[in-house]
């Protein structure tokens, strides 16, 4: 059943002009970031001061790291409708009347939205793989950074879904999610080693960008995503079984 809901959610996104527009804009931004990164790398190479760490490291700093910031905006916009959209379109009660558990509903929707974003991300990654025809890339470093990005997108999607389950206004869910992600990103950028630094997904993403596959960071993303999904499931369950409008 979760698979059915995932496929349905994917179909919905693929039929949404907004999702296509967002995906197109994301590719445009990816292309622009990628080309400017490559251009800068070539310029620096031309003046005989090639950046240390080679092109892979340069791309991660100048292409993949900014892409994570782009997803701070994109994920809330692409996931805001997950539950709130159904509420707004008067479909939510109908969905609750179907023989589907809250976990199947929430997890299915989460996977649908996350897979869509991962596909968008992978299309952007094609740009990087094109470079492998002309130069040698540090594949493991790039893969680690890519994994970090996917985990970040998962967490951001779960956060937006959680907010979406509390509201019947998708825009509000998107705004709350964006605000939370940006505050945590700023906290990671400005604070030292405090609690905010630990709680911030951006801080944990940093080690992935450095090519470090730390299990603590992986566990952080997986745990946070799991907690947010559990809260989302709880919220949907509360609405159906306990008749609460909390």
């Amino acid at each position: 059943m979760t698979t059915q809901i995932t496929l349905h959610e994917l179909k919905l996104l693929l039929r949404s002009p907004f999702a296509w527009l967002a995906a197109g804009l994301l590719q445009l931004i990816f292309g622009w970031l990628f080309l400017s990164a490559v251009e800068r790398y070539i310029e620096q190479q031309a003046i005989a001061s090639a950046p240390t760490g080679g092109i892979s490291n340069f791309l991660i700093v100048n292409f993949l790291a900014p892409v994570s910031i782009v997803f701070i905006v994109a994920t809330p916009l692409l996931c805001m409708h997950l539950v709130a959209g159904d509420k707004q379109a008067n479909r939510f009660n109908f969905l609750l009347s179907l023989p589907v558990t809250a976990s199947q509903l929430v997890v299915g929707k989460f996977f649908g939205a996350t897979i869509f974003q991962c596909v968008v991300l992978m299309i952007g990654a094609v740009l990087v793989t094109l470079l492998s025809f002309s130069t040698t890339l540090d594949v493991s470093h790039l893969m680690t950074a890519g994994l970090g990005l996917v985990l970040f997108v998962c967490t951001a999607s779960a956060l937006t879904l959680f907010y979406s389950s509390f509201s019947n206004r998708p825009v509000l869910a998107a705004f709350l999610s964006f605000a939370t992600l940006i505050i945590l990103w700023l906290a990671a950028a400005t604070s030292g080693n405090g609690i905010l630094q630990f709680a911030s997904p951006s801080a944990h993403l940093h080690s992935f960008m450095q090519g470090l596959l730390d299990t603590r960071d992986v566990a952080y993303f997986l745990a946070l995503t799991g907690i947010l999904l559990t809260l989302g499931i709880w919220r949907v369950d509360v609405q159906r079984v306990r008749n609460s409008s909390v």
Binding site: N93, F94, L96, S97, Q239, R240, V241, R242, N243
Partner: peptide
């Protein structure tokens, strides 16, 4: 009807 359809539990 929402209650009877299973969409909303009664108090």
């Amino acid at each position: 009807l929402k209650i009877l359809s299973g969409a909303m539990a009664p108090n």
